[in-house]
Design a binder for these strands. Structure first.
Lengths: 203, 203
DNA sequence: TGTACATTTGACCATCTGGTTAAATTATTT
DNA sequence: AAATAATTTAACCAGATGGTCAAATGTACA
């Protein structure tokens, strides 16, 4: 139950994820998903009752394929700076492989915030670990204190926005796709550096 | 030509901007815009020929009401750190007044990147000024060198993403709308601080 | 006042879109 | 091989949606 067993079902699901993440719920057409999967439109409704149900499955799948990894890193007992580096690197890798994910998730959550509760709480984020690390590092004089909220949002921002703003960035800086890839690769070094420099205590 | 003269036309246009920025092109309904404007649906087509044309006007209007301000600051002869502070403050103020703008622009540009050329090049961004300031400050040992691209993207990211991710942030940190407003207000101080700390040369 | 012109509306149309159904095809079981 | 169940399809439907049009209303002006 809930899982994907048949071959056809998986083909359809992959097609749906592709179309939904690219075009969003409103922009996606059931016919387009059927075409992408190379099957009849009625077969969509045979396997997934309707557009909403299919979309829900896709949305959950996207969240479940990314959030747990990131939360795992956040809740680990890694030292603070390592955590920042690993989080960045992992998140950028995920989004490099699926550049539409960030825009998709944020856009759909604005369109329909109720989904947040289910999908986020399933993966249960827990910020105490990180919060304690910050407090400890601040007390011991290693870093300037910063609220967890802002630290997490800063990391999310520096990592995710470039993917959401890809066309803007490419236009603004006259980049071609290869330039953009290189730009993102540079950020795997630059983002943790930026974050750490912004909080590290200067002598 | 291109401007809005009649009273009705402006009412319709405002309604369109409201609906389009909230729901996006695909999610917006001409009927909903008509209702929002309190007029007949046929009147939409009397003033603005069709959905595409109306959307185009709205999109241009949104870009034109924000980009030039920000580009003006970027191209001014303000000292680098003041520029960072002013840019952040102005951009956050704009988005506080129109929280949907960021998500709207980025989402629609991914959906239809060709529009970027027209709308961006109309406002003609010019990064030489900022680029020279960075080089100068780096040479004089005030800051660590950073490519303009990354500096600009870092600022855009730290400022814009929180608005795009509002529901995620509110959910993740159990914020209500007032909490979120306060959080954003905090960022007017924190973002320039983050940026400056990340590049300033330590002794 | 009457006439030309702009504005506004209700009714209507063609097409798109999500969804259904009954029949056909294929696989499974006995 | 016959019967039963699962999978797939073509054809179809109802409602939504962008868009049109002729008539009605309002406005300016001779």
């Amino acid at each position: 139950m809930g899982s994907i067993d048949s071959k056809t079902e998986e083909i359809i699901f992959r097609a749906a994820r592709k179309v939904f993440t690219r075009k969003g719920f409103d922009g996606a057409r059931m016919q387009e998903i059927a075409d992408e999967a190379g099957i009849n439109k009625a077969l969509l409704h045979y396997y997934f009752r309707n557009k909403d149900k299919l979309f829900d499955r896709v949305f959950r799948d996207v969240v479940k394929s990314t959030l747990p990894q990131l939360i795992g890193i956040m809740n680990s007992d890694m030292p603070l700076f390592d955590k920042i580096r690993t989080f960045t690197s992992t998140y950028i890798d995920i989004l490099s492989g699926n550049p539409e994910f960030a825009g998709f998730v944020f856009h759909e959550l604005s369109r329909n915030p109720y989904r947040l509760l289910e999908s986020l709480k399933e993966s249960g984020p827990n910020l105490r670990v990180l919060e304690n690390q910050i407090k400890e590092a601040a007390l011991s004089g290693k870093i300037e204190y910063i609220p967890v909220t802002h630290l997490v949002v800063n990391m999310m921002s520096l990592i995710a926005l470039p993917f959401i703003a890809q066309p803007v960035i490419m236009g603004m800086f006259s980049m071609n796709p290869e330039d953009f890839d290189a730009f993102i690769r540079e950020r795997k070094e630059l983002v943790p550096q930026t974050i750490i420099h912004s909080i590290i205590k200067r002598p």
